[in-house]
C-alpha cells in the first residue's frame, strides 16, 4: 500500500496546477523512491517529468510499485478543497480503484477526506538520455516568465541564443521584433536573483512560446529555473524542489525558416 504525507498541500496543488493544462490523464508511478510522473502533451511536442522523492514526504511508505491513473481535472477539483497549509496524506491500496486524499488542518481539528476514482491509463514511457548540455542557464523563474509572456505578445516563437556574451531571447512578428539579453550576474544579498550561464559551446534554437509560457506556470514552485540547451535536442526547463524533487519540462525545438 501507499501512504505519503506532505507537510503542505500547497506543493501538490502547485505542481498539478503547473501541468494540468499540458497533460490531462496521467499515471502517478509510486515506488519506494517516491512518486513520479511522466507524460507528453497531446501534440507530442512537450514532455512533463515530475519526481517527488520519498524524502519530500514524512512519512513515506510504498511497499510495491503502484500506478495511480488520475485525471488531473478531477485531482484539481479535490485539491481545491484543501487549504494551502493543510497536511496532505495520499493513500492507496496495492491494487487500488481509488486514491484517498486526507487534508488535516494543523491549527484546528478539521479532517477532510476525499476519494478519486482511478483510471486505467496505458501510457508509454520514454527513455530520456543523459545529456551533457552545451549551455545551462540558471535564472530567476519570474524573470523567465516575464520574458516569455512579453515576447509572446509579438510572436509565436522565440530564438534562444547562448554565447559567451550571454543569453539572448529574441522574436519577430507582424508588428515588429524584440529581444532580451541576460548576462551572468551575481547578487550576493539576493542569490535568488542570480543569473548563471555555463557554456561549453554556443547554442541557438527556436521554440514555441505557447509551451514555454505554459511551463512558466510552475514559477511559484521555485525562485530559480534552469534552462539546458544543446543544438538540435529538446530544451530542458527545470524547477528544482526541496529534497532533490523536481518538475521538468522538455520541449522539442522548431526547425527551418
Amino acid at each position: 500500500m501507499l501512504e505519503a504525507r506532505l507537510e503542505q498541500a500547497n506543493l501538490l496543488k502547485k505542481v498539478v496546477d503547473a501541468i494540468k493544462d499540458l497533460v490531462q490523464d496521467c499515471n502517478f508511478d509510486c515506488n519506494d523512491s517516491g512518486i513520479a510522473l511522466q507524460a507528453m502533451d497531446n501534440s507530442h511536442v512537450a514532455l512533463v517529468s515530475m519526481m517527488l522523492k520519498s524524502e519530500s514526504f514524512s512519512p513515506f511508505r510504498c511497499d510495491r510499485n503502484i500506478a495511480l491513473g488520475i485525471n488531473l481535472t478531477s485531482l484539481t477539483k479535490v485539491l481545491r478543497c484543501a487549504a494551502n497549509e493543510d497536511i496532505l496524506t495520499l493513500k492507496a491500496e496495492d491494487a487500488p480503484d481509488v486514491v484517498n486524499l486526507v487534508f488535516e488542518s494543523a491549527e484546528s481539528d478539521r479532517l477532510s477526506e476525499y476519494d478519486i476514482k482511478l483510471m486505467d491509463i496505458d501510457q508509454e514511457h520514454l527513455g530520456i538520455p543523459e545529456t551533457e548540455y552545451a549551455a545551462t542557464i540558471s535564472m530567476p523563474s519570474a524573470e523567465f516568465q516575464k520574458i516569455c509572456r512579453d515576447l509572446m505578445a509579438l510572436s509565436e516563437s522565440v530564438s534562444i541564443e547562448c554565447t559567451k556574451e550571454g543569453v539572448k531571447f529574441a522574436c519577430s512578428g507582424d508588428i515588429g521584433s524584440g529581444s532580451v539579453t541576460l548576462r551572468s550576474h551575481t547578487n550576493v544579498e539576493k542569490p535568488q536573483l542570480n543569473v548563471e550561464i555555463d557554456l561549453s559551446e554556443p547554442v541557438a534554437l527556436t521554440f514555441s512560446l505557447k509551451y514555454l509560457v505554459n511551463f512558466c506556470k510552475a514559477s511559484g514552485l521555485s525562485e530559480q529555473v534552469r534552462l539546458c540547451l544543446s543544438n538540435e535536442v529538446p530544451l530542458l526547463v527545470e524547477y528544482a524542489l526541496s529534497n532533490n524533487s523536481y518538475l521538468r519540462f522538455y520541449l522539442a525545438p522548431k526547425i527551418g525558416d
Binding site: 511536442v45 514511457h125 520514454l126 527513455g127 522539442a252 525545438p253 526547425i255
Partner: peptide, 14 residues
C-alpha cells in the same frame, strides 16, 4: 514558416 519537431523524434519509447 518553421516546423515543429515532435518529442518522439528525440526520446525513444521504453
Amino acid at each position: 514558416s518553421t516546423g515543429q519537431k515532435s518529442i518522439l523524434g528525440f526520446f525513444s519509447k521504453k
